[in-house]
Design a protein around this nucleic acid. Structure first.
Lengths: 335, 335
DNA sequence: CAGAAACTTCGTAAATGGTTGCCATAAATT
DNA sequence: AATTTATGGCAACCATTTACGAAGTTTCTG
């Protein structure tokens, strides 16, 4: 592969000059520039990004750490970020943390050792303290979907508590009082907050929270199925079900039909996240919108602004959920 | 950030020795190793991957180019690859090509300039010739979901024609003869081949192919909706519908219900890809399985074998689709 | 048991492919 | 002719790897 040295030789100029025409900062006469450009073309020269990073201590790439690479949720984060970063000619290096502390730390260290200019992290297992400590280090980062008061300027998050509140409220306003809940893993902040919001809504409407109508899932569809089975097997009556995400809601819907329930008449269901498939389920799933795409873009803008000094208006830190009404909730049926 | 130099100083050894203990290849006495390790720990030393790549001309990272970062299809590719590569301590750099030639070339060049040890490409717009030319260059790559005879050893692909055949056959065997088709963009190889397989099945069963019962979509759900609307508006009878992927099938199902069709009695539908949501649609979507996860892993194994010289049994190149029977196809109804 | 041979273990120094501050030169301006 | 100014070159530097060779240590041989 051709090097800058060969280019300079062919063009009859010095190394520095070639470098200058690549990084348009310094002035180079038009004639010289043309010679250099021609030489580059002739040699099919591709600058060695690695060498460039080493010398300039800049990599023009930002590291992203997500829990999983698979699934609609994370792919939305990645694609939102990539879109805005790419437009500014920054690139993206991705690692997966698999929601485990060691792997998350591993991933972060890898990204740092790769000399990313900044990191965008979706981490769930690493402690607040670790992140606060990390924030004192040399590598800037933003958090997505997590809020830590001490470093709140670096956090882009959703008001999950309010989201939990809204989803329960939708059911309550339709007259439901016996409401089951399929939760995400409670050690995850978002699951925890959603559940808190749920309880707040119940309290506000004077509905009793029945702790036997609770199932802690893991956010995967299968745990929605499992959760509904268990809830049903108790032979306790409930007319409404809130699931802490759409995946589980979808699993629960499948399972409900296996149990010969007529949806939505026999059971009103609400989800959370508003993934694209929510509107293609039958009945179309009412859910809480998670403006993940905007949030992902916000983190990317944070990086552009903070790290690359682009002039960008203020980056929004806290986003609000919104209830999306579709067909899966109906007024409670009199019997 | 601490450098290898500081470590060598603190440990009282030379640079080379420190390097040796990191890359366990050369021999170092235990005493020396311990001193070095202790120094590293004390300084919280993290090797600079960038400098390492430059010097060793190896980056331990492989570049992935997919069309989109978003969606179940691509996230499955990425996650399959990452899983096997990560297990061998290789890392992953991702770029998106957005199905456009310039962006795909751009992405490839970026990954090369980043000195990836190998590339795994899901490209749709770039020409065969470009890829054949690229294969003569210094950077090894595999193609996923594309077959080019001249470089078939570097291709991991699905027999899409056979898949198209299977999906039509399922409908035909249930007695359907009036079958509509919602295609992917025909300039994409896979869409093209699926459609060919479809026609082969029709011919084999002596069913007439009616070209007015054809709609060319773009693989997104919305084009499934649009497609079904148009097909329906023609007031031509059809009892079966094959969609070239599950996303479009899902869109078509939503739209069918808007038109008051009773699924599956009024219309039998089959999809393609077997994305995870296919089994959560109602009725559960019969579809053709695309063993994408295995294929993604196969490409990663190709890299491990070819580039990193790991001993791996033969990597499978051509994968076979398989029909997955669920609830969306029923025997044609007599009227 | 001395001395040679053969290993081990470790240090020196030259890459790797760029960036960039500083200085020199040539051209342009007054 | 003197002073600016626009260009371009030199060389140091970025943090590693690695070929080569120099000690030091062990084993072998007569």
């Amino acid at each position: 592969m051709a090097t800058i040295y060969e280019v300079s030789e062919l063009a009859g100029v010095s190394l520095a000059t070639v470098s200058r025409v690549m990084n348009k900062n310094a002035k180079v006469s038009e004639k010289t520039r043309d010679k250099v450009l021609a030489a580059m073309k002739e040699l099919d020269y591709k600058p060695n990004t690695i060498a460039r990073s080493l010398a300039s201590n800049r990599s023009d790439s930002v590291g992203i750490l997500v829990s999983e690479l698979r699934g609609l949720f994370y792919s939305q984060i990645m694609s939102g970020i990539e879109e805005v970063l790419r437009a500014s000619e920054k690139h993206v290096i991705i690692a997966a943390g698999h929601s485990k502390e060691t792997e998350e730390i591993d991933g972060i260290e890898f990204l740092i050792s790769r000399r990313c200019d900044a990191l965008i992290l979706h981490v769930e297992s690493v402690s607040d303290d670790y992140l606060i400590e990390l924030s004192k280090g040399p590598v800037p980062f933003v958090l997505i979907n997590r809020h830590i008061p001490e470093i709140s300027a670096r956090c882009v998050s959703l008001d999950n508590e309010q989201g939990g509140y809204l989803s329960a409220k939708a059911l309550l306003e339709s007259g439901h009082r016996d409401i089951a809940y399929i939760s995400g893993p409670l050690w995850k902040m978002d699951a925890n907050e959603r559940f808190k919001g749920h309880q707040r809504a119940l309290a506000e409407f004077g509905a009793h929270y029945d702790e036997t109508l609770f199932f802690e899932g893991d956010y995967a569809e299968t745990s929605g199925e499992e959760g509904l089975s268990q809830l049903l097997n108790q032979n306790k009556k409930f007319t409404g079900l809130v699931c802490a995400n759409d995946y589980m809601a979808s699993g629960a819907m499948s399972k409900a039909r296996e149990h010969q329930l007529d949806l939505p008449a026999d059971l009103s269901i609400v989800g959370f996240d508003n993934i694209i498939f929510a509107s293609h389920l039958y009945p179309k799933l009412s859910t809480v919108n998670y403006p993940l795409d905007q949030m992902a873009k916000a983190t990317a803008n944070w990086v552009l602004k903070t790290v690359y000094n682009q002039k960008i208006e203020k980056v929004q830190n806290l986003f609000q959920p919104e209830f999306i009404e579709r067909d899966s909730v109906v007024p409670v049926q009199r019997r």
